[in-house]
């Protein structure tokens, strides 16, 4: 198990390889569809994202005794942000994206060029991942984007994930797809006989 701490350095990110199991501690920011479009359109968030991490997540948030807590915080499907992600990594200096399902060619290339990784969280594990959130430190765009779409600043401790796209141009998604595709072709050919 590899421990990662934010802010992430280019060196620490470049040392990761596809398939590595990691636990991330420090500050991460949620962002999904509305936020990605907003950032892509050139808007600047009020917080510093350098060396930072965006988490594709629409958490369930409750206010208890004047403080926000997250009661469910699993990843959402990342591929919807593919048109925007590469440009946002570059402009904001992101070092990691957390989500599920993997991303496409543009993001893979941006990760390689700029020194960023894609961390795959466990889809559906909303309770385990909410437990990794130690503190909700702030929110931006709550009114404009609504709670699930807002940028939530979260302090996390040992948030579990797997590196599925690294900063060397590798993608576990591509590897598994081509290996399973070869196996599928074998089965389909056998059935033809």
């Amino acid at each position: 198990m590899i421990q990662l701490n934010t802010p992430l350095t280019e060196e620490s990110v470049r040392s990761l390889k596809v398939g590595d199991m990691v636990e991330l501690s420090g500050i991460i920011f949620t962002g999904r569809d509305a936020v990605h479009k907003w950032l892509y359109d050139g808007n600047t968030p009020p917080m510093d994202f350098r060396g930072g991490v965006i988490y594709h997540c629409g958490p369930v948030m409750l206010k208890k005794g004047g403080r926000w807590i997250s009661t469910a915080a699993g990843p959402t499907t990342s591929i919807r942000e593919e048109p925007y992600q590469a440009a946002i990594i570059e402009r904001l200096g992101l070092r990691a994206i957390i989500g599920k399902g993997g991303m496409g060619e543009k993001t893979r290339q941006a990760c390689q060029k700029l020194g960023c990784v894609y961390l795959h969280a466990i889809g559906g594990a909303a309770q385990v991942l909410a437990e990794a959130i130690q503190e909700v430190q702030g929110v931006f765009g709550y009114e404009e984007f609504g709670s699930p779409e807002a940028i939530w600043q979260l302090k996390v401790e040992r948030f579990p994930a797997v590196v599925t796209m690294d900063a060397h141009g590798n993608s576990l998604h591509k590897e598994i797809e081509s290996a399973s595709g070869r196996k599928l072709a074998e089965f389909q050919a056998q059935a033809r006989k």
């Binding site: 369930v60 009661t71 469910a72 466990i122 889809g123 559906g124 594990a125 909303a126 309770q127 385990v128």
Partner: peptide, 17 residues
């Protein structure tokens, strides 16, 4: 995933958001 199943049941909260 197994931890998550146990936690959701114990807390009576949605397994997945």
């Amino acid at each position: 995933i197994e931890n998550n199943i146990g936690l959701a049941k114990a807390k009576s909260q949605p397994l997945c958001q």
